[in-house]
Every structure is written in structure tokens, then in C-alpha cells.
Simulated scan of single mutants.
Amino acid sequence: MFDLASTLLAAAAGPTGARAAPTLFETATKALFPVAAYLALAPVLWFFFRGTWRELDVAAHEHQRKTLASGSYDYRPAVLFVTTALVLTLQEYYGGRDFYENHLKPFLRELEKQGGFGVDLRKWNELYGYGWWAFTRVFGYVAVPMIIWKICFRKDSLLDMGLRVRGFLKHAWIYGLCLAVVVPAVVIVSRAPDFGTYYPFYKQCSRSWFDLAMWEMMYFAQFFALEVFFRGFWLSGLRTTLGSGAIFAMCVPYCMIHYGKPYLEAAGAVVAGIALGSLAMRTKSIYSGFLVHVTVALLMDLLALSHRNALPTSLWGP
């Protein structure tokens, strides 16, 4: 899926499109470009978040000292890592298009034959598939970890997973700053020849505003679930044991879920993970990262449709 940092990297790397096979030099340049970007962005991240990282490390050190002094053991990292492995594995094997096509679509076809529940595969098959994808992300990223966590650690409040809204307006300027940086990059990238064919992922968005609205709701839901899991569940579960290291540890699975997507998107996930994770720890909220994600994602979809003159003209479609 779309990633903020990949947009910035793509904008810096220049437009792409149909062209001859790249030379070895061009391939090497592309492969090494994220490394240069990491080195350039590292001082910026350090400048903005060094205080937050320091606070996390101090708090983690104190927690570890008390835990060792009491002779107890903190099971949170073990529960979190096992839960993560379970969730990501289930999503890989059962949360994609193949599972929908092989197992759910035949079931829906039988319902359609019986005239049940208004199923219309001819019109809505692609949307049904994305509906399954969005459901598995919300269920896997939100329901599963929260249920497991509450069973294992009953005294922990789930609201501490970055879900409290108190103080959000105090940090609203950060949301505005992120948009000020990313939106121009989105506009630049949107002029690439292949941009208009890549977004939106749901190809029937042009059919009607209803199609577009349904897709964006699913898209937004998976972004919220993503933020809950990686910036909420992961960081709240590891902050007392790893300190600022929890942010960098989170970037590993966050980057890996982008495998199979364009190289710059996967590479950009590292920077995005550090920035959004640090932002979540600084504000004690996932909402700024979520709002940046969905704002830019919606803008990218609308720009792509606009550039190919494919914005919907009908409310409901044929």
C-alpha cells in the first residue's frame, strides 16, 4: 500500500514510466538511492525526535531496574512478538486475493444463484475482494492483538495504545507540517506516466461516487488498523523494555509487509516507520499519523483519477 516516505523518495528519484530496460548503473543508482536518503534524513529525525527517544530510554531503564529488583519477568515482548508472527502469517496466507477467489467467491456465487443478500459478482466482485482484504487487516491488526493483550495483561488499558484523544489539538501543527512536506511531493509524483494507472487500487472507482466512497472507507479502515498495530500495539507493548529501540524494532516488520511492492515503497517504509513511530510516542497518539496517511492517500487517488479524466460522473453508476 501507499507509504509517505516512498512518495518523497519517488519524487526525489524522478518520474518513471514505460522505457527501455535500465542499465546496470541505473539499477545500482536506484538500489543505493535509499541509503543516501537515509543518511540525509537521519539528522532531521534526530533533531526532531532526540528528546522523545531520550525520554523513552530513561523510562525503559527505570522499568527494567524495578523489574529486575523485584525478581519478576516482563512477558510483554514475548507475547507481542508471538502475536505479531501469528497475525502476519495468517494475513499472508488467508488475507489476500487468492483466498477470496478460491474460497469466498464460490460461496458468494452460490448465494447469488439463490438470490440471497443482493450478491452481484458481475458488478461488485472486485469490491468484495477488497472488502475481504480490509476486513482481515482490521481484524488481524486490531481485534486479535487487543483481545490477546487484554487476556494476558488485564491491568493494561487498551487506550494506552495511542488511542486517547486528549491533547490531540495541541499537536495538530505537526499534522499540518507533515502535509506541507508531503503534499508537494505527491503532486510531483502524480505527474509520472504510470501514476494514473497505479492508483486507485480499486479500478472501478471511476464508475460512480458510491464505488469511490466504498473503496476509500475500506482504504481508510486498513490505514487505521495499520496505525493501531504498528504505532499503537507494538510501541506500547515494547516501550518499557526497549525504550526508543521499540521504534526501530517496529520498522522491521513494517518494512517487510511492503515486500512485493515497488522497491522505493519498501525502502521508504523504514523512514516512514521511524518518523510515524516517533511522532506517535511524542504525541502519545496514533491519530496524527493516521490523518496524514488518509489525507495523502485520498489526494493520490483523486489526482490519479483526475489526470486520466476518470473522476466519477454518476452517484450510483449503471
Rank of each mutant, 00 (worst) to 15 (best):
A13R: 15
H307S: 06
E55A: 15
A69S: 08
Y175T: 02
G237Q: 09
L56Y: 07
A143E: 13
W132E: 09
A185Q: 03
Y287F: 05
A60Y: 09
I174R: 03
L177Y: 00
H293G: 09
D74W: 06
H307D: 03
F49Q: 04
T295Y: 03
D98W: 08
G243R: 09
Y202D: 01
A40L: 11
P22N: 12
L279H: 08
R164G: 12
W133Y: 11
Q64W: 09
A143S: 11
V142E: 03
L212K: 03
P77G: 08
P262S: 01
D98G: 10
V44Q: 02
A225G: 01
Y219I: 01
F229N: 04
K66N: 14
L242S: 01
G176C: 04
R97L: 15
Y130A: 04
D120V: 05
W215Q: 13
F49C: 06
H307V: 00
N309P: 00
T23G: 12
F153W: 01
F81T: 08
T89N: 07
A28K: 14
F201L: 13
F229S: 01
D120F: 01
V182E: 04
L305I: 05
I247P: 03
A297Y: 08
F81H: 06
K261Y: 13
S288K: 15
R19N: 13
L121P: 12
L9M: 13
V165P: 02
A11H: 09
L88N: 12
V296Q: 08
F210G: 04
A249Y: 00
A78R: 11
L56Q: 10
F2S: 12
K113A: 15
G273A: 09
D160E: 10
L56P: 13
P312Q: 01
L104C: 13
L169G: 12
A40V: 06
T313N: 07
C178Y: 00
I188A: 03
L298D: 07
K66M: 15
P106T: 13
R282E: 11
H103S: 14
D160M: 09
A5E: 00
I174F: 02
M1Q: 00
L90C: 14
R154L: 05
A85D: 11
L108W: 12
R231Y: 05
R164T: 12
S206E: 02
G273M: 07
G96H: 10
W173T: 03
A69T: 05
A40C: 07
Y141E: 03
